[in-house]
Simulated assay, not measured.
Amino acid sequence: MRKLIMWNLITLDGYFEGEKNWDLSFHGLAWGKELEDFILTQLRSIEILVFGATTYQGMADYWTNAPEDEGEVAKFMNNLPKLACSTTLQSANWKNTTIVKDAVKEISKLKNEGSGNMFVFGSGILSASLMKANLFDEYRICIAPVFLGKGRKLFQEGIPNIPLKRIETNSFSSGAVILRYTP
Rank of each mutant, 00 (worst) to 15 (best):
M1Y: 10
I5P: 01
M6N: 13
W7F: 15
L9F: 04
T11K: 07
G14D: 05
G14W: 06
Y15G: 05
E17T: 06
E19I: 05
N21V: 01
N21H: 09
W22V: 07
D23W: 03
L24N: 09
S25K: 14
F26M: 07
H27T: 09
G28W: 03
L29R: 09
L29W: 02
A30W: 04
W31F: 14
E34C: 07
I39D: 15
L40K: 15
T41Q: 15
T41C: 12
T41F: 10
Q42N: 14
R44Q: 13
Q57D: 07
P67W: 15
D69R: 14
D69I: 07
E72C: 12
A74I: 03
F76P: 08
L80I: 10
A84S: 08
A84P: 03
T87G: 13
T88C: 03
L89F: 06
L89W: 03
S91Q: 11
D102G: 11
D102F: 04
V104N: 05
K105M: 11
E106F: 11
I107T: 07
S108C: 09
G114V: 02
S115Q: 08
S115G: 14
G122Q: 04
S127M: 13
K132A: 12
A133H: 06
E138R: 06
R140E: 09
P145M: 14
V146M: 03
F147P: 06
F147H: 13
G149W: 09
R152T: 10
L154F: 13
L154S: 01
P163V: 00
P163C: 04
P163I: 00
E168A: 14
N170V: 03
S171Q: 11
F172V: 00
A176Q: 03
P183F: 02
P183C: 08
